[in-house]
Design a protein around this nucleic acid. Structure first.
Length: 565
RNA sequence: UGCCCGAUGGUGUAACGGUAGCACAACAGACUCUGAAUCUGUUUGUCUAGGUUCAAAUCCUAGUCGGGCAACCA
């Protein structure tokens, strides 16, 4: 296991209960072996993280192991590019498969032999029905299917045909190998499912060694058995496949018979999780790529500034059930704030700057003021922040005619400049043409250096600032939810989910920041005081010129109150 | 329509026949050199109808609602 992985206690769930009971009854000789079996045809997202945490977490908690197995049985859609990114993402999440890296494609030889064994038992046959006929013979859920013509062909003939399939004598789609189960089964998956098809397509690992490829249902259960998996955990849509999973293993002489257990996949509010939709957003340029910080992909979350531990904590909190739920993204954001509050150093950045001139502060004087890096972590120490006559403050922190309850800066009132001085606003300069505020004027109280009030007077408002002379302008990207609809998978009739993309999901601004932020290295996280948590983008930052991605804003009771008013 | 699965506050989850609890969210207050954090408090729940039982969120039956399944995808 990766050093970084903390062993967080995980409350039990129905799957852990099963594993625990099996271990106590010595069902699998007390062993616990799980696997995470992605198909290398797309990038991982936070839904996969749930599965990864579950499978690797169970292995860790029960002293077992978890395999990483690429379920690469479809050469047409898979690619090594995905293999690489999936391994990177799993490692980044903090999990380690050790020696146990496997590929279903490495079992092609064994799987082929199992298929021949099934034929020899009279439990599989080569079928030459065309796609339309195939459907017709299969029937529909409410009506039984009927026997395909070759269903009762003797094993020897099927064996010969299957070998010829393998030898490349037939065209794609000309023949398939089918399990011989029950054409009248109420479960469609048991109506003689296809277990091998012909594909004259090179495989990203096996090359051109094969022109017959096993189907998921055949390959998956056998791969599990070959690896000695004890608990084969998958999502709910495979529930109806379980009888087939068990049937295949029961027909063949396999090393063990793993137990398939299904759980509900993760759905997150205001985003989409399906491969198809994610791909559509990327292909149509609606996001900048697979690692767009607005996407729930692992790459996107990493780029946004999420940490592996936040994702793990989130997965721990959502639990595991068989109920198809929609998890509120607010829970994810809570996990983020909870961790970042403890770990992120603070700094000041003014996102929408307006000039503040301290009229009684000497023109050429520079005060270096001590500022606490992280009030939640005294070990993080202090830094010095330069203070001058001309500063920038947040435009929204000044109101000429403040409403009730506003306690920032307004004419005649005192406000604290964080770690600076108590200042009193004396007036504003306006653009004579537009009436816009060009600068705010104030006087400072020299006795309040550091923001202290030796006379004990209470100052309600504290605002952040930067010294105009020492500030650096940098790019900051503010993110909001990708969709305006809580559940983009459930759009009103006749409408497309893409219509509900949030046009304001990305806003690029130029902020004025204090020196520590301008000097930061890519990959560093900060809390911009009173604003939110930000991450120096590892891709676009340059030395001395970081670009910040907003990870998550701070909660804002004032904004909420305004929104309500 | 056939089969499979599910249903506990707004959301996510616990309670494994014996006091419906936790977290997020929301709301109110305290505190505060971040309108953050922290602390305190409040609101809101067992899908319906029968049955079994001293006792049902839990077991049984039926219904309702929701999800899944009819790729030579996984």
């Amino acid at each position: 296991m990766n050093q970084e992985v903390k062993v967080e206690p995980v409350a039990s769930d129905f799957i852990r209960d099963i594993v625990e009971a099996d271990r106590e009854s010595n069902k699998h000789g007390g062993r616990v072996i799980t696997r995470f079996p992605p198909e290398p045809n797309g990038y991982l997202h936070i839904g996969h993280a749930k599965s990864i945490c579950l499978n690797f977490g169970i292995a860790r908690d029960f002293g077992g192991r978890c395999h990483l197995r690429f379920d690469d049985t479809n050469p047409e859609t898979e690619d090594v590019e995905y293999v690489q990114s999936i391994m990177e993402d799993v490692r980044w999440l903090g999990f380690d498969w050790g020696e146990h890296l496997y590929y279903a494609s490495d079992y092609y030889g064994k799987l082929y032999a199992y298929a021949e064994a099934l034929i020899q038992k009279g439990r599989a046959y080569v079928c030459g029905l065309g796609q339309d006929e195939f459907k017709e013979y299969r029937g529909v859920p409410s009506m039984p299917g009927k026997e395909p013509p070759r269903r009762n062909t003797p094993p020897a003939e099927n064996l010969d045909m299957f070998r010829r399939m393998r030898a490349g004598e037939f065209n794609e789609n000309q023949y398939v190998l089918r399990a011989r189960i029950d054409m009248a089964s109420p479960n469609i998956h048991m109506r003689d499912p296809v277990i091998y098809r012909i594909r004259k397509c090179p495989h990203h690992r096996a090359g051109t060694a094969w022109c017959v490829y096993p189907m998921y249902d055949f390959a998956h259960c056998l791969s599990d058995a070959i690896e000695g998996i004890t608990h084969s955990i998958c999502t709910l849509e495979f529930e109806v496949h379980r009888p087939l999973y068990d049937w295949i293993l029961d027909q063949l002489e396999v090393p063990c018979h793993p137990q398939q257990i299904e759980f509900a996949r993760l759905n997150l509010s205001y985003t989409v999780m399906s491969k198809r939709r994610l791909l559509e957003l990327v292909r149509n340029g609606l996001v900048t790529g697979w690692d767009d910080p607005r996407l729930p992909t692992i790459g996107g979350l990493r780029r946004r500034g999420y940490t592996p531990s936040v994702i793990r904590e989130f997965c721990r909190r959502i639990g595991v059930t068989k109920f198809g739920s929609l998890t509120d993204v607010a829970l994810l954001e809570h996990c983020l704030r909870d961790e970042l509050n403890r770990t992120a150093p603070r700094a000041m950045a003014v996102m929408d700057p307006v000039r503040l001139v301290i009229d009684n502060f000497p023109e050429d004087r520079v005060d270096l003021l001590d500022a606490v890096n992280n009030p939640e972590d005294p070990a993080d120490g202090t830094r010095q922040v330069p203070f001058c006559r001309a500063l920038y403050i947040e435009r929204e922190d000044f109101m000429e005619e403040p409403p009730k309850g506003f306690f920032r800066m307004s004419p005649g009132r005192e406000v604290r400049l964080r770690y600076g001085y108590i200042v009193q606003c004396t007036g504003v300069d306006r653009d004579p043409a537009t009436g816009d505020i060009r600068a705010i004027h104030a006087t400072y109280d020299p006795a309040t250096r550091g923001g202290n009030t030796p006379d004990g007077r209470k100052i309600k408002g504290t605002i952040h600032w930067v010294s105009a002379r020492h500030a650096t302008g940098i790019e900051v990207r503010l993110y909001d939810r990708l969709f305006m609809l809580e559940d983009p998978n459930d759009v009103p009739d006749g409408q497309d989910y893409k219509q509900f993309l949030n046009p304001k999901s990305l806003e690029v601004i130029h902020a004025m920041v204090e020196p520590v932020l301008a000097e930061a290295a890519a990959g560093q996280r900060f809390q911009f005081e009173r604003k939110g948590y930000f991450f120096a983008d590892p891709v676009d930052s340059k030395p001395g010129q970081p670009v910040y991605n907003q990870i998550v804003p701070l909660r804002d009771a004032w904004a909420k109150r305004q929104g309500r008013g």
